[in-house]
Amino acid sequence: MSPEILLGLVLATVRMSLPILFAASGGYFSEKSGVAQIALEAYLLIGAFTAAAVGFQTQSLILAYVAAAVAAAVMAQIFNILIFKFKANSIVVGTGMNLLAMGIIPIVSKTLFESTGSTPALDTSEAALKQSLIMVSVTTVSMMALCYWIAEKSNWGLQIKFAGEKSEALTSVGVNPIKRRWQAVTLCALITGVGGAILSTYLASSYSPLMSAGRGFIALAAVIFAGWNLRKAWIVVLFFGFAEAIQIQLQNMNLAVKIPNEFIQMLPYLATLVALLLLRNKQQAPKEIS
């Protein structure tokens, strides 16, 4: 294998990992606070669509990213209200959130752009791509630093973890665990929404229908695969990104032996199940997750 291909593979791995990285980091906080989160897919989709739409209208990447985060966070409030005020099952509501995202985007898109499918393409000139690359790098590094700080160093992060492990302890020091969970889910949506923005403005140049393609679920798998550990989850994300990168690479190369696409696509999911099979990680799940 020539060095160029190898380098291309490494870069593609990093690129493909990015949306999953954001979704997994977001999902980590929600899961840690004790709220099972299967709506990551919805936040990714909303983020991707909002970023593409706002980016097209305003020609500003920063606004696109901010709008994506805010849109996902606003949508997450539906989830929050139902979970915490109406005590609904988080998985029932999560399923509904995914349906809502899949259903509402084509309608909004048709109203705004007269098309149910893709949004109009963004600027793809060299300068714009360079700007996009800088934006993505800065956002990713600061997101990782921020998440690490919240999860490992801050008091607030510790309280989020306690909300998922032993909420009585929080109550006894005068902190409402519901409040921490509420904040954790909102944080989750903010981060995941930015992941969606990267999906539509950096990995592509427009929103196309269902472009998240199960990445929200892969991110959830990464969090579980890593035993609800943030840094391990990031490494797992790279592995899943590699699976996607190699899939694209193999399509470009004309190999004598064809590895079916479907098998490479299901690799992350299979890996998660194998991990469940081999590891005994029942201790690692947040105790009060529901």
Binding site: I78, L82, F86, K87, A88, N89, V92, V93, T95, G96, M97, L99, L100, M102, G103, I104, I105, P106, I107, K110, T111, T116
Partner: peptide
């Protein structure tokens, strides 16, 4: 403006309302 995807929105809203009303 509405498309067939509206059925998904409808399902989602019904899920939300039923989950809330039951509680």
């Amino acid at each position: 403006f509405l498309t067939r995807d509206f059925s998904k929105v409808l399902q989602a809203i019904i899920i939300f309302c039923v989950a809330g009303a039951v509680y």
